[in-house]
């Protein structure tokens, strides 16, 4: 447990081989039985997420992107195929995992600080040892002065920042985010995108980020995984070759527009987007 935490200091070596698959997903399928027959939420998913990579999973609602994320988190079992994290087949949530959901699910009866510390409580880490780190995270995310407030006293954006701090508290290697900014207004969303990009730049955690925002996916990611529904499957994975660190202005460049156009065109051709 590093206490300075956020910075990839000398006590925390960089990932040994940047190209190695941190998460290896092989032929993963997930179907549910229902009255109208089986629903194939996922089918034949093959994907490697490299260590230190920021990957976005983009697709229309019902394409199984959240299900895929829950499978990677070990919260749901695939009905076929296999997922390995760091070379080990998954049985339950992997080590050093952090999660952020669309709803911040902060606990109303805890202060902001205590909400962040709950991650340590669950992992049986003495909270005294991570308290300083929790405060640093909160300050870094602009929540200085709100440590002892309750969640209901915070705006939606601030709440989600606290939820991110909670996920980062135990310095996870793998960060899974399920439409974390989906419920926020555009300005707050931009703000948090920048914040997340900066954090990722500093720590190079492996991130899988589920979203239905095309611009958000391109802005944040090294690769964007595009999915379609019925059955939920990957239709294309594109590399985002934009220089880092990225600033919001990158969205006005021709390259960025090119990526947006490509993705939009793909979704339009599949009938997922009606354009004109």
């Amino acid at each position: 447990m590093t206490t300075n935490g956020m910075a990839a200091g000398p006590d925390r070596p960089p990932h040994p081989i940047a190209e190695a698959a941190y998460v290896a997903i092989r032929q993963v399928g997930k179907s549910y039985g229902s009255l109208k027959g089986a629903v194939h939420a996922l089918e034949g998913i093959d994907l490697d997420i490299r260590g230190g990579e920021f990957i976005s999973i983009l697709g229309p609602s019902g394409c199984g992107k959240s299900t895929l994320l829950k499978c990677i988190a070990g919260l749901e079992k695939p009905t076929s195929g296999q997922i390995q994290v760091q070379g080990k087949p998954l049985s339950g949530p992997p080590d050093r995992l952090g999660m952020v959901f669309q709803r911040d699910v902060l606990l109303d009866w805890r202060t902001v600080l205590d909400n962040v510390l709950i991650t340590a409580e669950f992992a049986h880490i003495p909270t005294a040892s991570v308290r300083e780190r929790a405060l640093q995270l909160l300050w870094r995310f602009g929540l200085k002065g709100y440590e002892d407030r309750h969640p209901w006293e915070l705006s939606g954006g601030m709440r989600q920042r606290a939820a991110i701090c909670r996920a980062l508290l135990c310095d996870p290697d793998l960060l899974l985010m399920d439409e974390p900014f989906g419920a926020l207004d555009a300005m707050t969303r931009d703000d948090l995108n920048l914040e997340l990009a900066r954090i990722w730049q500093d720590t190079r955690k492996t991130v899988a980020f589920v979203t239905h925002g095309i611009a958000e996916a391109i802005f944040l990611s090294d690769r964007v995984v595009m999915m379609d529904r019925n059955p939920g499957r990957i239709i294309e994975v594109i590399d985002i070759d934009l220089p880092r660190p990225r600033h919001l202005a990158v969205r006005e460049t021709a390259e960025f527009a090119h990526y947006v156009g490509h993705i939009r065109h793909l979704f339009t051709s599949l009938g997922l987007l009606k354009d004109g």
Binding site: K70, L75, V105, L176
Partner: peptide, 26 residues
Amino acid sequence: DPDMINLARASRASSFAILRKIRLPN
């Protein structure tokens, strides 16, 4: 909220901890 339970499970919380820290106060 099922996501609250998911979050706890992702942090490897025991079901007793989930009961005591989430379900009961909730």
